[in-house]
Design a protein around this nucleic acid. Sequence first.
DNA 1: TCGGCATGCGACCGACCAGTCATATGACCG
DNA 2: CGGTCATATGACTGGTCGGTCGCATGCCGA
Lengths: 226, 226
Amino acid sequence: MPKSTFFRLPEERRARFVHEAIVEFADRTYAEASLSQIARRASIPKGSVYQYFEDKLDLYRWLLTEEAPRLKRAFVGKPSVEGDFWSRLEDFVERGMAFLVEHPRLARLSAAAADPTANPEVRGLHKSICEAGIQELRAVLEAGAESGALHASDLDVATRFVATIIGPGLTDVVLQELGAELHEVLASDSLRKRLGPKRRRALARQAVDFIRTGLGSAKPERRKEA
Amino acid sequence: MPKSTFFRLPEERRARFVHEAIVEFADRTYAEASLSQIARRASIPKGSVYQYFEDKLDLYRWLLTEEAPRLKRAFVGKPSVEGDFWSRLEDFVERGMAFLVEHPRLARLSAAAADPTANPEVRGLHKSICEAGIQELRAVLEAGAESGALHASDLDVATRFVATIIGPGLTDVVLQELGAELHEVLASDSLRKRLGPKRRRALARQAVDFIRTGLGSAKPERRKEA
DNA sequence: TCGGCATGCGACCGACCAGTCATATGACCG
DNA sequence: CGGTCATATGACTGGTCGGTCGCATGCCGA
């Protein structure tokens, strides 16, 4: 948790610091990321950083568990309740992809929970975040199973497969689509112009189709256009 | 590339060094891994390391592109050409899982290519390894498509989805299955006793079923037992 | 005006690292 | 024996880091 001083900071100073922290932690590993660097870039003396946070991990934890989720929620909004299970899932995936495109750095920060690291404390943090995400997705799929839309002999396993598809899998596909590397993407604030809603929708549909019907059978006729 | 001295080393010294290097790079990020640590643990003076390799990256590259693939090839053997496309894929997946279980550290080292990093040289190395893996898998799937077993509107996208399933996805599932964390697993030489061939086969089948039929339709009758 | 308190600040500390280098060792050769 | 060459060795350099500390600053209430 940030110290109280942090919340009493002049808005501009805090915003600048948080921005630079996100930039740093988004394009470097926890181990590689440097408080000194953040402080330098935000033009804030290093000593001050320790007035705001206990230590490096405290800042990282706050970003990962509070700030990034808050900003993501604000962007993604409430999950849709319209339509059948599969189109709801498609919406969900499309929203996630939109977040990735519009806020690459935040998306990368959110995804950092999957990064490996030798630091046990960071590992614990990452794990709890991953597990929460998995549980959330599991609940979604459970509902799908109850509605009869989805059939899985082992829902835990299925959940993890689906999670890797709509997480790293889709990210990989999007990067491929853009012909860019993660790091080029992190340098830009938004990729709006390079991957519009239409194409996103198409990719989301491809992902959901994959999850729904796999690759083993000829595709049924396309579902209604969005 | 290692320097020529490296290849002239007494077998025991080289083996010990390589072993400790694998241990170090398998459970830490490239940035976190330390040559000093490797040298200490192998009881080899640090200066000597630089008689064998140009620098840290040189060692890492050799491990990732030469040593790990060599050991992996030796373990997994030639891909099977028996049976239909889907059962061949299942074999392929099962072999990969067996490697993960029998040689967790080597598997982790091989998977390190997906790790993020701020170091551009390491990034380039990782990328080329990933890309090679994708191409290999793509060729497999292409054959499946030609044989009519597999249908994908966009094979590139499909390949990337499949890759994440049988890579991180399966690893995740296996860890879940073992109720262990990656780091606990890296501490042990082999998990033979905790995840035998039968269970592996079942998991491989689940993964391939997922890829083949997805989650949207009731499962067809089980294919023949292995 | 003064005192005290929150905060700003940056030099400093100890740790660790990648990589170098001068010196030492010892095998082989003439 | 002397010389040379590959190799071993570990102290050392320069750098970065996370984190601390003591002084400086400036606001607020009396």
